[in-house]
């Protein structure tokens, strides 16, 4: 009797049924707590929502009017373009910067671990503080960066990093890249550490140089981590808000305005809740595409 039960227990633990069960916990958790809010926003995006009717769900249905209004808004093109530049720039620079640092600190030299640990400090600062500090550093008249550039004779006059519409997006990108690099670095470092060393030794015996080994071994084997990181960084940049809010408020003349900033402005400053929800739905669509690409990459992931 006891043996029989034990067997059943073992079989249950071994069965295919454990997969949906295991995935289920986390998925249901998210579906429960985030599913409703996401649907709530989707519904708001096709309704006329005011402070007066926000407390009920039954608000006038307006179809795609909120979306149409957004697309017709002259701001749409600007914000779309800014978001595109901001996200691409951030994802590329954060990833490349993170990878370069991860590879560098992988080398065995005294203090490598210590310095790598220190760099993570950038990721620990609250966004409010990062925004404030970078605003100081980038200030045109008494900012440290201009001061250094002028001291080194690289530029003659001040650069209006944040107050020139031509450079404000670059300014906030600086700050956000600085913030995101440690995150990329540490995850890539962990990924690198997980790679089997014997393959490198074999490749080295075959006469492959470090560059060959990087492209032939490291990159392919690191692929799962890389795709995951790229997808996550894209999403995090898509919803970056605090830094820009603290540094420029989206200005001057909306030159650093991106989707999450616009969504917040519409919802909580103009009380256009339908519009704010519609912007966030557009963000959802973009991320849906990113997620599809990512899932494809997971599908083709080689099983080691």
């Amino acid at each position: 009797m006891k043996g029989h039960q034990r067997l059943r227990w073992e079989r249950a633990l071994d069965s295919e049924a454990i997969w949906p069960l295991m995935a289920g916990f986390g998925a249901l958790y998210l579906a429960f707590f985030v599913g409703y809010p996401v649907i709530y926003n989707l519904i708001m995006s096709v309704q006329q929502v005011t402070l007066g009717n926000i407390s009920t769900v039954f608000r006038p249905f307006v179809g795609l009017d909120n979306y149409r209004k957004l697309v017709d808004d002259p701001l749409f093109a600007t914000v779309f373009q800014n978001t595109l530049i901001f996200v691409t720039g951030n994802v590329a620079l954060q990833f490349l910067g993170g990878l370069a640092l991860a590879l560098f600190f992988q080398a065995a030299f005294p203090g490598a671990a210590f310095f790598r640990g220190m760099i993570l400090a950038g990721w620990i600062l609250p966004p409010l503080v990062i925004g404030a500090v970078w605003k100081w550093l980038l200030a045109s008249d008494n900012g440290v960066i201009n001061y250094a550039l002028r001291g080194l004779g690289i530029v003659s006059g001040p650069i209006y990093w944040l107050s020139d519409p031509a450079t404000s997006l670059i300014g906030v990108t600086f700050a956000n890249v600085w913030f995101g690099v440690p995150f990329n670095m540490i995850l890539l470092a962990a990924g690198l550490a997980g790679l089997p060393q014997d393959m490198y030794e074999a490749a080295a015996l075959d006469g492959a140089g470090p560059v060959r080994r990087f492209f032939a071994l490291t990159l392919p084997m690191l692929q799962p981590t890389i795709y995951a990181l790229l997808a996550l960084t894209t999403i995090y940049t898509m919803r970056a808000f605090d830094l820009i809010w603290t540094m420029t408020h989206g200005g001057p003349v909306d030159s650093s305005n991106i989707f999450p900033v616009w969504s917040y402005h519409l919802s909580f400053e103009l009380f256009d809740f339908g519009g704010g929800a519609a912007v966030s739905t557009m963000m959802l669509v973009v991320v849906f595409i990113v997620a599809l690409i990512y899932v494809r990459s997971v599908r083709t992931e080689r099983v080691s």
Partner: peptide, 27 residues
């Protein structure tokens, strides 16, 4: 199904907390 779960997991982190918090408050 696993793909669906993965996409759902990715999508769940798009909306910024200020937009999520009101319906979450109700929960």
């Amino acid at each position: 199904w696993m793909d669906v779960v993965l996409i759902g997991v990715m999508l769940s982190q798009v909306l910024p907390p200020p937009l999520l918090v009101t319906p979450m408050f109700v929960i």
